[in-house]
Design a protein around this nucleic acid. Structure first.
Lengths: 193, 193
DNA sequence: ACATTAAAATGACCATAGTCATAATTGACC
DNA sequence: GGTCAATTATGACTATGGTCATTTTAATGT
């Protein structure tokens, strides 16, 4: 299994060096060749691991979303609204680890969502996780029974992603969280009530 | 003013030929040089009009959004929810004029939103228009007074854009409209009511 | 008409993402 | 430990987006 180990190592090396360089010089100012030199591999090798330069950014989101279940477990208490807000906060914090890459990363996530149409994309995973949360709440709380969980979860994802996108330039986590709060208030209580 | 006329002509020629070629061969398979040849201009000239190839896609959204006020006027009757649904429907129909470009166009709109941060971008315009609609409704209808119109409008844009994005691959307008309807039902009545 | 200046067009040029035929490495099997 | 097949690495090469110094064209003034 030497081969598989090497592959994993190379892959991780590429990601590590690429992100380090992106942080340092900005995504656009880093060439693929530069990344491969940092890794001590040939340029062509890069494309054996990632079909396009941008796919590294996608990987970042993968990592975030892999922590999703963990993040959901972090806040098992409180009302559904509180839990959702906590989850949003955690995800925002993770995203803010690479503030300069936030916008680009989101763009790529969206792109892949548009292009793939598959169930396996990250936003779909997020939606499924939220839908499950709503389903659980339905057991305890009559008030949620009216709605299809998946549609409701989809709204939450709509709000999360698009708010993040429009706010990503200003990069202020707390402002963003306030906006989330206000939006959740509205959809919880109903726009026309 | 010969100069300005020529400029306008060239600009329009580029847009016209570019979109025709995109429809015919797909965005990725059309080179800038190809576009300029079709227009009978030099390659460099293209970049005097559009800083990047992708900016042509942005122009498409500009056109759509310029029709926004017109679209809003089209349905002055009915409840707010009905009006919003009508507006969504009209916009979806406009977008579906270039079904193959829909995804790309949206991607670019989002990109520019992320990058510019200015008030002048198209999504912001959409939001402002919707906020105004909500404000008007507030005059007649007590029930909407609780909420900040801008935040509420922002939710509607979140839903519109992100639903469009996730659904753009399947390209089925009616499915999309049904989804809009379900989502609006939820946020109108309130998720937890 | 001619000269001067400003705007716009041009295309040779460059940088770099991505390809691909070839070479090197690995694992399996005898 | 030698042979073969499959996998992975390599880097010369190609294609194309985008730049920029130079040239052309339009507008203004005399």
């Amino acid at each position: 299994m030497l081969r598989e180990n090497r592959k994993k190592q190379t892959r991780e090396s590429i990601i590590k060096h690429a992100i380090a360089l992106f942080k340092q010089k900005g995504y656009e100012n880093v060439t693929v060749e530069e990344i491969t030199i940092a890794c001590g591999i040939a340029k062509g090798t890069f494309f054996n691991y990632f079909p396009k330069k941008e796919h590294i950014l996608l990987y970042i989101t993968d990592t975030y979303m892999n922590r999703l279940n963990e993040v959901i477990q972090l806040h098992p208490e409180g009302s559904l609204k509180e839990r959702v807000l906590h989850i949003f906060r955690e995800l925002v914090m993770i995203y803010f680890k690479y503030p300069d890459l936030l916008g680009l990363t989101l763009e790529e996530t969206i792109r892949s969502t548009v292009r793939t149409e598959t169930e396996s994309n990250n936003l779909r995973k997020f939606q499924t996780a939220l839908a499950q949360l709503i389903d659980e709440e339905k057991e305890n709380n009559e008030r949620f029974k009216n709605w299809d969980s998946d549609t409701a979860a989809s709204i939450l994802v709509d709000i999360f992603i698009h708010t993040l996108l429009t706010q990503s330039a200003s990069l202020h986590a707390e402002t963003m969280m306030e906006l989330f709060q206000r939006k959740l208030n509205i959809i919880w209580e109903g726009l026309a009530r």
